[in-house]
């Protein structure tokens, strides 16, 4: 049906965490990355939620892409359809978390519905479409990218515990400014992995 790229699932998983980390290599989903990383516990919760959402939506969107969009020839609608699918999955996840873990639901608060507009989710799905992944690859890539996002936000949250206690940062750079500089250095560390595993 599709000519999927010949990349092993394990290397695809590692690549989506290290070489093409959705946050530190592609800079997708930085808004919630910067705002939530202030708090370590919420970062943990949001990281898990984003991983689940990206993993599930990339599986669902793969099915929608190859069983609905392509047969009907409506590729020009794919952006809108993907966004609707993401919104639906987030809504369902929200209801499930509310039912089974009210404390996590309360902790995530407004940020759970906001995952809908997290560009990392749509970005991963569009990568999946462009790179013509088959179903197992799409699922692994989705969960891998989510795990990469999760790792990145945990790292930043742990660094910000130190940064926010630091009063010597110049006034103009306090808060978001110094955080962006820190993210730059983190991205620099991840540059080292480039060329290790090709995902394209």
């Amino acid at each position: 049906m599709i000519d999927a790229p010949s990349v092993g699932l394990v290397s695809l998983f590692l690549a989506s965490i290290l070489t093409s980390n959705v946050l530190l290599a592609n800079f997708l989903g930085t808004c919630s990355f910067i705002s939530i990383s202030k708090d370590f516990r919420s970062s943990m919760g949001l990281g898990i939620a984003v991983t689940m959402v990206i993993g599930i939506t990339s599986a669902v969107c793969w099915a929608v892409l190859y069983f609905v969009i392509k047969p009907l020839g409506i590729e020009y609608l794919s952006f809108i359809i993907f966004i609707i699918v993401i919104a639906g999955v987030v809504q369902m996840l929200e209801m499930i978390i509310d039912r089974f873990s009210p404390s996590l639901y309360m902790a995530l608060g407004i940020f759970l519905p906001l995952i809908t507009v997290n560009c990392a989710v749509l970005g991963v799905i569009l990568f999946m479409q462009i790179r013509k992944y088959n179903f197992p690859q799409a699922v692994v890539f989705g969960f891998g990218s989510g795990a990469g996002w999760w790792l990145a936000i945990m790292l930043l949250a742990s660094i910000r515990k130190k940064l926010d206690a630091n009063t010597a940062v110049p006034a103009g750079l306090k808060g978001t400014g110094i955080t962006l500089i820190t993210i730059g250095f983190m991205a620099m560390a991840f540059v080292g992995f480039s060329g290790m595993i090709a995902v394209q």
Partner: peptide, 14 residues
């Protein structure tokens, strides 16, 4: 080595 140490610095707090 440079990248490895930057990578280590990134993980230090965690």
């Amino acid at each position: 080595t440079s990248f490895a140490i930057l990578f280590g610095n990134t993980f230090a707090s965690l």
